[in-house]
Design a protein around this nucleic acid. Structure first.
Ligand code: NAD
Ligand code: NAD
Lengths: 231, 231
DNA sequence: CCCACTTTGTGCGTGCTTTCACAAGCGCGT
DNA sequence: ACGCGCTTGTGAAAGCACGCACAAAGTGGG
């Protein structure tokens, strides 16, 4: 019996694909909950809101995990995607800035479901430090380095006002955290090797407004603006 | 083979550019607050965290608003970008699902600063309806159509659990809302002409985990291309 | 075994995005 | 008036991403 180990996955998964894998994963888990054993690229693509060819190409980057004529085994695919995304290990998350948003994040249950564990909540306000939020005591920001070290924090979440965000990011980097999720509306400056992603409500709204305005413009007449005389 | 007629060449700003305009706008407003009158593409690009050639090409889609040898007039550029994004008019926003996240959003001050006004908060829970949150009375979801009509809501924000999100989206669409910002971790199904954007914390964390795992994997081995380096 | 049918995996054309590199344009000093 | 230094705006090239369309591969029935 010729035993071939699973195809060695290529180390170059396109960024666009990486961004969609979590979506596929969620769709697959929904199917799993529903007791579905196998799924075709067509069906899964519909559930994920993408083109089926795109889905197949995305999955092909992980390996050949489908069966022609049948489809993909749901459970196996869940495992493969989870593994590729690094969800088979645990990630400790620290949230800094326990205000409106930080509290919502801390209280959000959907975190722990997938390998992410909130390990610490930190704030600078003496009135907030010591409070108990989501079964955790809010610590003082001064303890950031200590907390990161002792609790093995590898992902930092910034939910402070914009003015403090860069400072907090620097502290995280200094402490060895190389993955940062930033909710503050500011561009963070970090050294190479540190991965920053941002979630920006205001930007999303502005993009929606842009499209809404365009739809409204085109509705009545073609407002062809080329030159404006405003000085 | 029927050759397609020459494309209509509509007034088209690339999607990638639209997504960056809000970032430029914020950087410009920071400069404005600081009293800066003009800025070069190089300096603005640095503030926005992008390549300067990209910035110039992005801005060139709006028109020729720079002065060679000098740069861009900050105030004028703020106006032009705002106008292009549709921020010179007011947008009424309705938030549905006044839980952890909905409350954070409602209490978030950064909304109103730029053309977006929270016009209504809606929930299905009788215990939440009637509460006063951020100077607004939480209304019942049954009144969605009425509220949309009477308050001219044009952007809907969904902050309900995943199970309710599709239903709420349908109500929004039915009521004539064509711009939706979705925080629930589910793929929304909407007709053509409706613009949905999603903000998904869980996906962002998973993408961070993927890169973190890759960095860890490659630590001792072949450090493939990624633009990331360990120091 | 063969054939009809299903579904994957991917080669390829197309269009979008990014980046480089530089001519053209502008202001200032002489 | 003219040249110099600085900066924009944009061709051109390279790199990505998407989706069609189809051969390859598997299933099941006869
Ligand atoms: N609330 C929202 O819905 C929302 C939406 C989009 C963006 N944001 C952004 O998220 C961030 C937080 O928003 P929020 O509404 O929760 O603000 P908030 O003012 O309610 O909370 C901020 C918290 O950060 C703490 N803080 C300030 N400086 C700190 C520091 N140096 N170290 C540690 N903690 C510090 C404050 O004590 C406070 O508890 C802001 O940047 C905001 O622009 C919020
Ligand atoms: N809290 C977070 O930090 C966070 C982060 C990421 C994603 N999310 C997502 O955002 C959504 C909201 O999260 P949350 O933590 O605020 O949840 P939550 O349970 O605190 O709040 C949900 C609210 O929606 C209301 N609701 C339920 N069904 C409704 C319906 N049909 N119409 C109107 N209102 C309805 C509930 O009454 C409740 O008040 C969830 O989908 C969650 O997955 C939340």
């Amino acid at each position: 019996m010729i035993s071939r180990p699973p195809r060695p996955r290529e180390r170059g998964i396109p960024e666009a694909t990486v961004a969609r894998l979590p979506v596929y994963l969620r769709a697959l888990q929904t199917l799993q909950d529903r007791g579905t054993a196998t799924v075709s690229s067509e069906a899964l693509a519909r559930a994920a809101g993408v083109n089926s060819a795109k889905l197949r190409k995305d999955l092909s980057h992980l390996g050949s995990y489908g069966t022609r004529g049948v489809g993909y085994e749901v459970e196996y695919l869940v495992y493969q995607i989870s593994r590729e995304l690094g969800l088979t290990q645990d990630w400790s998350v620290a949230i800094v800035g326990i205000g409106n948003l930080g509290r919502a994040l801390a209280n959000y249950g959907g975190f722990g479901t997938r390998g992410f564990r909130i390990a610490a909540l930190l704030d600078a306000d003496p009135g907030v430090v010591g409070q108990r939020v989501a079964s955790l005591d809010v610590g003082h920001i001064d303890k950031l380095e200590e907390v990161v070290r002792e609790r093995g924090v590898s992902i930092g979440v910034i939910a402070t006002p914009a003015a403090s965000a860069q400072g907090v990011a620097g502290r995280f980097v200094e402490a060895g955290v190389t993955s940062i999720l930033n909710f503050a509306p500011v561009v963070l400056n970090v050294p190479d090797g540190v991965d920053v992603r941002k979630v920006d409500l205001s930007i999303e709204l502005q993009i929606l407004a842009f499209h809404a305005q365009r739809r409204a413009d085109g509705d009545g007449r073609e407002a062809e603006r080329a030159g404006l005389e405003m000085t």
